[in-house]
Design a protein around this nucleic acid. Structure first.
Lengths: 143, 143
DNA sequence: CTTTTATTGAAAATGGTTTTCATTATCAGG
DNA sequence: CCTGATAATGAAAACCATTTTCAATAAAAG
């Protein structure tokens, strides 16, 4: 279970395990969509009613530092976060419901080599993100 | 010249040509880096001293609507804008000085087809962005 | 020129995020 | 199982980028 893993990671890095953190971690780890701090706040209060929004921000910050979650950039905003998955992976997002899928194997080596040669840049990182409509949403729109 | 072209575009779309707009357009069109609204504001006031920050925001909004500029997403923030170039192009950014290069020919068709098949998503759009160190900055760091 | 009305800049409002701070809770060591 | 050091918390205030409001101004059509 991802949530347990994240809590272990937090503990191993010297952070204390609190009810507030558990609620935030649980919420983000379970979600199949990217969530904004306020969305995390709202969902996590089901488990931990006294939770403050500030703590959500602080916990998300730590999870991001540890590489467990990543910020999701979209046309309509870049405040949402989602689980990072394992190793180097990219995102595929449903523009209708937000459902996110991680994938790896981008095979960009040749392209990056060509661009490096053409521009003289030493390319060190790349972001790739796909947008589309997921299976469920396609079915719905057909009806 | 890009600036002239953008002004024509604005006019053709029913917008008036004002001194404030010309200053903003000129600034963004010339820049080789992505600029934040405040950076545009500061630079454009050299030409148009009375310019207000609000007008910068409003003009950037219109240029984005017309597809002449695009928002640049980076780890440290997503407020900066840069010229869109022609047609479907991607960005290569220098992480040191910010110098930006647009490139096309991403050859992602095969990858996208494979992902579509695996996930059942109908992929409609993709974002690709490369980060690296430009030629100039590499030379500097060698010294 | 004149008239219409889009545009402007200043100020205020807004909304998301961060900081401050006194209180509380975790958990290592006794 | 306590207890003390201190990390973590939530509330309130501060912050800062962006948006809205509004009266004054300027573009441009006729």
């Amino acid at each position: 279970m991802t949530a347990e893993l994240w809590l272990t990671q937090l503990k191993d890095n010297g952070y204390r395990l609190t009810e507030a953190r558990k609620a935030v971690v649980e919420t983000v780890a379970i979600s199949k969509r990217a969530l904004t701090p306020v969305e995390v706040f709202d969902q996590a209060r089901a488990t931990s009613p006294g939770l403050g929004l500030v703590t959500v921000y602080r916990t998300l910050e730590k999870l991001e530092e540890l590489g467990l979650i990543q910020r999701v950039h979209q046309t309509h905003g870049c405040q949402a976060f989602i689980s990072s998955g394992n190793g180097h992976e990219h995102l595929l997002l449903c523009t209708n419901c937000g459902a996110a899928v991680l994938f790896s194997g981008d095979k960009l080596e040749a392209l990056i080599a060509a661009i490096s040669r053409q521009t003289g840049y030493q390319v060190e990182e790349h972001w790739l993100q796909l947008f589309g409509v997921c299976k469920k949403c396609r079915k719905k729109s057909v009806k």
